[in-house]
């Protein structure tokens, strides 16, 4: 094994799922799943160092070189467009970015459409393609509340099963993009730790293909 590979994984269920894929690819660190207050987990034998970070921060850690590789949702990549290599669709954490609103909502083009979202860049790009005049309302959570309280006409948000929408009398109208977890790499690390990154990529690719 060559140089130590620094890996940033998203905290939570998705992170644990992809961690198992990394372990199966030969980049294991059993300590990383233990319930401890430690922030960094190393396994020198496997040449790997893991750290768990907030899902939306993984791309920053990788882009800035604090991590060599990481796992990021396609939604985050679409929103922040970090300068990274997006090496593989891990085909886990599947959901979609969708426009949703109150059931029966009629989108009248006579008015500016008010859109509440956590993804202002994606929203702007999506509606610019449709030449639609919109007013973006940037929220940080509980996006579904916005159309119910009249704060917005529609929302553009992550939809997994659509259950939350349904329970609140909302429905998805349009799919903006399919989302899943992606393996990303820092562009400089890709040059200097290419052998390790290629080994990881091949190991993960084999698992993704086997599951199809």
């Amino acid at each position: 094994m060559g140089q130590m590979l620094q890996i940033a994984l998203p905290k939570g269920r998705l992170g644990e799922k992809v961690f198992k894929m990394f372990a199966a690819a030969g980049f294991d660190c059993p300590e990383a799943l233990e319930d401890t207050r430690k922030l960094i987990f190393e396994n020198p034998e496997a040449g790997v160092c893991f750290f768990w970070v907030k899902p939306s921060d993984v791309a920053i850690y990788v882009e800035r070189g604090a991590a060599d590789v990481g796992v990021v949702g396609k939604d985050i990549l679409m929103e922040y467009k970090p300068e990274l290599f997006e090496l593989l669709d891990l085909e886990v954490g599947k959901c979609r970015l969708a426009v949703a609103g109150k059931k029966g909502f009629y989108d009248s083009t006579e008015h500016t459409l008010r859109v509440a979202t956590k993804f202002p860049s994606v929203t702007m790009e999506y509606y610019a393609k449709k030449c639609r005049d919109i007013d973006i309302i940037k929220l940080n959570g509980s996006i579904e509340l916005a159309p119910i309280l009249g704060l917005s006409d529609v929302i553009l948000d992550i939809v997994e099963t659509g259950k939350t929408l349904l329970e609140n009398d909302l429905e998805p109208f349009e799919t903006v993009a399919e989302v899943s977890a992606r393996l990303v790499a820092n562009r400089s690390a890709f040059q200097f730790k290419n052998e390790e990154i290629q080994k990881l990529l091949e190991g993960l690719k084999a698992q993704v293909e086997a599951k199809r």
């Binding site: 882009e63 800035r64 070189g65 300068e83 820092n186 562009r187 400089s188 690390a189 040059q191 200097f192």
Partner: peptide, 9 residues
Amino acid sequence: GYVQGVPTS
């Protein structure tokens, strides 16, 4: 061009 220790080109 990339040099080791700098995360961008």
